[in-house]
Computed example of a mutant assay.
Amino acid sequence: MKRILITGAAGFLGSHLADRFIAEGYYVIGMDNLITGDLRNIEHLFQHPNFEFHHHDVSKFVFVPGDLDYILHFASPASPIDYLKIPIQTLKVGSLGTHNLLGLARVKNARILIASTSEVYGDPLVHPQTEDYYGNVNTIGPRGVYDEAKRFQESITMAYHRFHGLETRIVRIFNTYGPRMRLNDGRVIPAFIGQALRGEDLTIFGNGLQTRSFCYVDDQVEGIFRLLHSDYSLPVNIGNPDEITILDFAKEIIKLTGTEQKIVFQPLPENDPLQRQPDITRAKELLGWEPKVSREKGMKLTYNYFKSLSKADLEKQDHKDFSKYNH
């Protein structure tokens, strides 16, 4: 039985990846320090014979007994609200955490896939974004703690690949959504759905003409699964190229929820990207992958998930104490 370590396993994407690899017959070792993760995302796996969980911060030395075939490094705050509240921890998990896991992969002779992001492109001057584009990033801006952590993560991963011959994979994840996201974490979809559920007006930052491209979580997991098992070591965009303005998307949310909220506008945050659309040519050619789930279907599934949660569950999602981690 193949053994895989998934860091950030109690998070949104990490928990879905744990489900997928369990379903594929792997023994899954989940690891998370629960800063932004939630044990409720993986509690259904606790009694599974092929799953174990380690409560640990990968920014500190990582030890896993036994053999490892694969490592998926998904431990990092991924939403603006989170990484702006814990900027130092965000930098540490992208640098120290990645270094620790690359070292573990080398000791275990394991293949490692690291989760990078479309944020490495910053506020792009090239559209759509290809993997060959180097980006337009403000290193000292408030978003730089996340952007630069991910850029460094890619650099050290490629250094280990080239210098040590380590089997590495890099996925650049574009906006992904689905069940188990946290409401009000600063990302567009959970923010809009949270406001709709509370009967509040939908808040758009800027004029709403900035664009995003949303990929449903099942499609994202499929792309990551294929990339891990490919022979390609350079970064690969995994996202949905179906681009939409935030203003039009807000109108879709109002239609989906059957509510009559107004749309209100607030100033655009510093360095917030104005365009985001992946070029997925590389993923199509190398992996035979492209997204299958339409935004209409994916949003219905996501909205129904949030509607199914109790009021207490919704409130718990929004209370995270970051004070002890920012050091």
Results as ranks from 00 to 15, higher is better:
Tyr134Arg: 14
Gly135Gln: 10
Asn136Met: 03
Thr139Asn: 08
Thr139Glu: 14
Ile140Tyr: 11
Arg143Ser: 12
Gly144Arg: 07
Tyr146Asn: 11
Glu148Gly: 00
Ala149Ile: 02
Lys150Arg: 13
Lys150Asp: 05
Arg151Asn: 01
Arg151Asp: 00
Arg151Ala: 00
Phe152Pro: 01
Glu154Phe: 04
Ser155Val: 07
Ser155Ala: 14
Ser155Arg: 14
Thr157Trp: 04
Thr157Tyr: 03
Met158Lys: 11
Ala159Thr: 02
Ala159Asp: 06
Tyr160Trp: 12
Tyr160Phe: 14
Arg162Cys: 00
Arg162Val: 00
His164Ile: 00
His164Asp: 12
His164Met: 06
His164Leu: 12
Gly165Asn: 03
Leu166Ala: 06
Glu167Leu: 06
Thr168Gln: 03
Arg169Tyr: 01
Arg169Leu: 02
Val171Leu: 07
Arg172Trp: 06
Phe174Asn: 07
Phe174Trp: 13
Asn175Pro: 04
Thr176Cys: 13
Thr176Met: 03
Gly178Trp: 08
Gly178His: 11
Arg180Asn: 12
Met181His: 11
Met181Asp: 12
Leu183Gly: 01
Leu183Ala: 06
Asn184Asp: 13
Asp185Cys: 15
Arg187Asn: 13
Val188Ile: 15
Ile189His: 09
Pro190Val: 10
Gly194Ile: 08
Gln195Leu: 01
Leu197Glu: 11
Gly199Tyr: 05
Glu200Thr: 02
Glu200Val: 00
Asp201Gln: 09
Ile204Asp: 11
Phe205Val: 09
Phe205Trp: 15
Gly206Phe: 07
Gly208His: 07
Leu209Ala: 14
Gln210Leu: 11
Arg212Ile: 08
Arg212Val: 02
Cys215Leu: 15
Cys215Val: 09
Tyr216Asn: 10
Val217Lys: 05
Val217Tyr: 13
Asp218Asn: 15
Asp219Ser: 11
Val221His: 08
Arg226Leu: 15
Arg226Cys: 04
Leu227Met: 06
Ser230Ala: 08
Asp231Ser: 12
Ser233Glu: 10
Asn237Gly: 06
Ile238Gln: 03
Gly239Cys: 08
Gly239Tyr: 09
Gly239Glu: 09
